[in-house]
Design a protein around this nucleic acid. Sequence first.
DNA 1: GGCTAAATTTACGACCGTCGCAAGTTTGCG
DNA 2: CGCAAACTTGCGACGGTCGTAAATTTAGCC
Lengths: 215, 215
Amino acid sequence: MALQTPAATTGLRETKKQETRQLISDHATRLFIAQGFEQTTIAEIAAAARVAKKTVTNYFPRKEDLALDHQEQFAASLAVAVSARRPGESALAALRRAFADAVAAQDPVAGFSGRQFARMIADSPTLNVCLRGLHDQRENHLARALAEATGAQPDDITVQTAAGLLSAVHRVLFQRIQTLTLAGHPNDQIAHAIAADATQAFDLLEPALSGYATA
Amino acid sequence: MALQTPAATTGLRETKKQETRQLISDHATRLFIAQGFEQTTIAEIAAAARVAKKTVTNYFPRKEDLALDHQEQFAASLAVAVSARRPGESALAALRRAFADAVAAQDPVAGFSGRQFARMIADSPTLNVCLRGLHDQRENHLARALAEATGAQPDDITVQTAAGLLSAVHRVLFQRIQTLTLAGHPNDQIAHAIAADATQAFDLLEPALSGYATA
DNA sequence: GGCTAAATTTACGACCGTCGCAAGTTTGCG
DNA sequence: CGCAAACTTGCGACGGTCGTAAATTTAGCC
């Protein structure tokens, strides 16, 4: 029913793949929320979705992939913000603006999520490790974007330091959103508080990077 | 032979424990260097040291503990540098000085190590994850020290941001030392190059934190 | 010097995540 | 209709981690 898109490339096979993938993902998130990430085994998820264990790991090579979505989007977010900065705008200004927009939209990529989801992450060492890795990837992508923006080498000390500083501010703000979510604050209230925090944090960095990588 | 220290508390049992621990650690590092971290199993280490697998995991709960030493010292390094800052010295100045000293001494805690050791770490995803976690712990300890130094709450946005920025610079410099070591440069040459990099990196942060947490 | 109680080492087993492989099934296309 | 490609499946294996009970060693004390 409702085979609206015969899939650009082939057709039936693709749609069934998407359905299977979604089926697995849905059962996984449901079980993760209900009983925790570490407490849920891949075998359980496979049984709930009525597929083989191997099918689960085919779609999601790592167990973390079942819980964390939009990974590459997250890793690229800062780099694209810099690459898309306006004429005359510095990298810092562009990242400030991008963060403000994300907060206003309560974007999950900025750290906004339901309370149960935040608890699942906080309770799982595995997911925390994964999250740290994503912050790292994001910083590396940002460093490459800054190198391209300034014409410097990607391993230039100024480029890497600037990327580290900017990434650190975003990471601190991300964790702050997580903490507030975990404490049970509603997203609207969090967005309001984080906007003020972001002003303080970015202002601290302003004298160091005010004119860096201005388009 | 040579039972110089009957051990402060009890005696023979403690010394044998230390011997067993050292025996396991020696065989582990030897095997890690020879054939890589991931390629070496705990069973292999136990066989080489002629003890049971469980004995290895009793002394070293995590496999990473067999490869990375001085973990708590590393995690505390930035915090103690701030806590021990001189009168009139800012946190940034104290950390600059501590890093310069560590580089001059080619301190392993700053990232100096043999080439084989650096390769072992670089080739192991597990150890990279562990290292990231240590950088994180170090930042958290620094945040607590900064909170105490300024009288602010540990979850204050300025405290967390300052800790994040200072930690980011140290992390970038640490990784740079690792990279140069991996490229085969001798430690003396690395120390010279890193000193210049540190000047640039810390100078970038100077206008943002010049007077922060001055004793 | 020997005995008893405590601690450490040991052996065995289990579970889970990850990976490889061969066979069976379904799909797309000629 | 049949063939080739893909996806799914079940099986097995390995390694890290964690219990638990037995065996050995040690310390303290009579």
